[in-house]
Amino acid sequence: MEPFLQSTPPPPGPGCAAGIAFFDVETTRPTPEWPRRALLEFGVILVCPRTLVHLGTYSTLIRPFDLPSLPPSELFRSNGITPEAIAAAPHFSEVASIVFRFLDGRVWAGHNVEAFDSARIREAFAGVGMAAPQPSGFIDSLPLLRRKFGRRTTDMQMATLATHFGLGRQLHRCLDDVRMNIEILKCCGMLLLLEPEPERPPATSNSAFQEIREISLDLIGASLVPARPSRTGCKIQLLHRDSPLQIRCPALAVRYGPNRRYCDAAGRPKLSFLVEADPVLCMFLDACENIARTMSLDSGSSSGWTRAVEYNSTCNAFLARLRIPGRADTDDIAYATEVHRRFPSGETCVVVFDRLDEAEQDQLFLPGTLLDAYIRLDAYDSHEKAGILLVVERLVIHCT
């Protein structure tokens, strides 16, 4: 068996023209006697980000310096890598310069590449006293598909996805797994492209929302209305002049960005963020809570009341939590809030919020960012807790 093979060489030098480095590693199994993972195989395919044409391929088996004398079944997977093949392979120090050339300065891609494979590469270079290659970015298909592909399969393991798309069995050999990873991404992309766009609710009318400073507190009331179909009983509906109370709060300042700590019943993250509440907003919400809480007590509820505004001693400010609601008409991670950007020129543009990854979403809500929020006030009483949720129907984010 050849200890390594190299087909077409990589383009000279790093950079975007050099392609995306899809790579994979195979390692020993950790055991109580030898808990570390030693590198046994490395494989990489360079792909053009514009055409998906393969620009270069390299694969090699690697012989660890200090492989212990344990039974092969304890150290090796059942994937065709044998002690005899490893004994004929080069040490990592003999191939490190080639690996470096394929990886340094390129986007690193793979399934769980950021958490696992890249760590093994850095360990291997440290083990031979060489500086490790540095990525220009990551495309990790494991979290990417969890976020974009939703719950179409039982899990996002590559073997499960391969079975789902009829791509065969995962072999746990580097180049085979890299090729399978690329094909899975192509299949997922094609499926998402062919799926019809779910119908979105009609655009929110600004006229349904009243400027908070123009609302007369004396005209705020409440009534009991039927709960949504999935719940029994009634819920409290806050009203202004006998219409559902919806408010517009201009120029709110973000204090803390998105929180995704909690998930809904389908496992999708609930998205919320904290804004500074000025005295006008605090007074308004106090009035609404007094009305809703009185009706809650009169209705026989014994749930503890959670305030919509809380004082935060760390930042010495009153903070209100705004919630971006998820959409119930899809299994994907999707949100119902309309999001717009407003530029200093006065022009606005729509932000397709669902298509942003978490890092891009976080960039919209950096501390100090000003935004206009169109808010629906939802009273709730569930699991011994009651209060008012500030649900954002529309956001206009001020861009500097």
Rank of each mutant, 00 (worst) to 15 (best):
V44A: 03
T82A: 04
S207E: 14
D218F: 06
D378S: 08
F102N: 01
T369F: 05
A124I: 05
R101S: 14
N290M: 11
D357T: 05
Q134Y: 07
V350I: 10
S97A: 15
P226C: 05
H54Y: 15
M1T: 14
V44F: 04
A115E: 12
R37H: 13
G168H: 07
L191V: 03
G304R: 11
S301R: 10
S216W: 01
L70T: 00
L271V: 02
C48T: 12
P32C: 12
L194I: 00
L217A: 10
T8C: 10
E74I: 09
F273W: 11
G110A: 07
R248W: 06
H240V: 04
M156R: 03
Q246E: 12
S205N: 13
S345D: 15
Q134H: 07
E358R: 02
A203N: 06
P32Q: 11
L194T: 05
Y374A: 07
G19P: 11
S230R: 15
L366H: 04
G15Q: 03
M295H: 03
L167V: 08
L67W: 06
D278F: 03
T82F: 06
A334Y: 05
A131V: 15
R321Y: 02
V254F: 07
V275N: 02
C234R: 11
D298Y: 06
A38G: 06
R260F: 14
A126L: 13
P64F: 03
L193S: 08
A265N: 14
L40K: 07
K148C: 09
A17H: 15
D372M: 12
D372A: 11
G267E: 10
K186E: 10
L364E: 01
D329V: 13
V128P: 03
A131N: 04
T369D: 02
I388M: 10
P10I: 01
A17P: 14
L285I: 08
V107Y: 09
E195Q: 15
R255T: 08
S299Q: 11
L161V: 05
L75P: 02
R50Y: 10
L319W: 03
P226A: 07
S223G: 06
E199I: 14
A38Q: 04
F125G: 14
R169H: 06
Q237D: 05
G15I: 04
V113S: 06
E199A: 13
R323N: 09
H54K: 13
L46D: 08
